[in-house]
């Protein structure tokens, strides 16, 4: 009982996270391309309740950053002017769910003050904002690519399992070829076949297609196994006896048996594919500037001085951990739920 609550708790948290990412425009104080040229690599803003005179404020406030006169290249808080944090602040324009235009942000401070929850990058862009917007691309890439892999796996696996014979042989041997390549090398090989410089709108679709298309073999094999055993079941034979079409057999009797696997594989593939996008973009083969994605946010770390000096640049990678943890918890729970012992 307790574990069931934990499971649903994790599912709700994860769904909430996705919702926040989806409404990045509302939750982020800036737009993802807005540059604060005078504040490159500014550390995360600290939220204060007590000012330098020791007075408590109900409304939290932040201080601005100014250059540290003693150590060049670093910042100190400018204690002279506190900037109160406004809730439902008015800021740059965005569209709610990509449709309804709005300028209301969950929080913000009045210019010339600025609030950077996760610091800024080399162009002075708010990392928190870019993390949220980057999440839209990375999560969508993971979700869509996983759906693509599974759809392909479902089609190939059920055709192979259901019709058997030479078709099965050909499809599964094809899968062997795909699985005989280390996954990342395969990903790179397919990436190499596609043009390097692509308009921004297309690159996302391209990356999703590449990641999704190469991952069909394993789900297809699993689904084939289920279809193979399901089609020998007597209720399938009985339906054949009524003259059921192949389509009817697959839809009513066989495919419903694969939902367990599809669901479990989905929760396993999504984080793996998010990571694939992150890896590609990190290495400069995926989503590039100025579009944010979790991978392109991390690619700044390829510079030694960024890696060594600006700890907040790691935050996007560190924030991936709880997301992956949630997905793996769900996958484990599903695997346990669907394991033959439990049935």
């Amino acid at each position: 009982m307790n574990r069931r609550y934990t499971f649903w708790g994790v599912v709700i948290l994860l769904a909430a996270f996705h919702l926040v990412i989806l409404s990045a425009g509302f939750f982020s104080p800036y737009s993802y391309s807005e540059q604060h040229r005078d504040l490159p690599y500014a550390p995360p803003s600290r939220i204060h309740f007590i000012d330098s005179q020791g007075h408590f404020h109900v409304r939290p406030f932040v201080y601005g950053w100014k250059y540290d006169a003693h150590s060049p290249g670093s910042y100190v808080a400018d204690l002279a002017t506190p900037y109160p944090v406004h809730v439902f602040a008015f800021g740059s324009a965005y569209k709610i769910a990509g449709l309804i235009p709005s300028r209301i942000h969950l929080f913000g401070v009045d210019p010339p003050g600025s609030i950077f929850l996760m610091g800024t990058d080399g162009y002075g862009r708010d990392q928190f904002t870019r993390f949220l917007y980057g999440g839209q691309i990375s999560l969508a890439a993971g979700l869509i690519a996983a759906a693509l892999s599974l759809a392909l796996g479902l089609v190939v696996g059920s055709i192979a399992g259901f019709y058997g014979g030479w078709l099965d042989n050909a499809l599964m041997r094809g899968g062997d070829v795909f699985m005989a390549l280390p996954w990342l090398y395969l990903l790179f090989a397919v990436r190499a076949a596609l043009p390097l410089h692509v308009p921004q709108g297309q690159i996302f679709l391209l990356i999703v297609a590449v990641i999704g298309l190469i991952g069909w073999a394993r789900p297809a094999r699993l689904i084939r196994g289920v279809v193979l055993s399901a089609k020998e079941r007597n209720f399938v034979l009985a339906a054949r006896g009524f003259g059921a079409s192949d389509f009817h057999l697959l839809r009513r009797h066989i495919l419903p048996r694969t939902y367990n696997i599809v669901l479990t594989q989905m929760t396993l593939l999504i984080p793996q594919y998010i990571l694939a996008e992150v890896t590609l973009s990190f290495l400069g083969l995926g989503i590039g500037q100025p579009l944010p994605s979790w991978g392109s946010l991390l690619s700044a770390l390829q510079e030694y001085y960024v890696l060594a000096s600006y700890w907040w640049m790691y935050l996007p990678a560190i924030l991936l951990v709880p997301v992956f943890l949630a997905y793996s918890q769900i996958a484990n729970a599903l695997q346990e739920l669907f394991s033959p012992v439990a049935l």
Partner: peptide, 22 residues
């Protein structure tokens, strides 16, 4: 064969496997 099928029917030994549990 389709119309012939309604004239001939078979019942399996084990009803548990002959009926779709879903």
């Amino acid at each position: 064969l389709f119309p012939v099928r309604r004239r001939i029917q078979l019942v399996f030994q084990d009803p548990a496997s002959a009926l779709n549990s879903g």
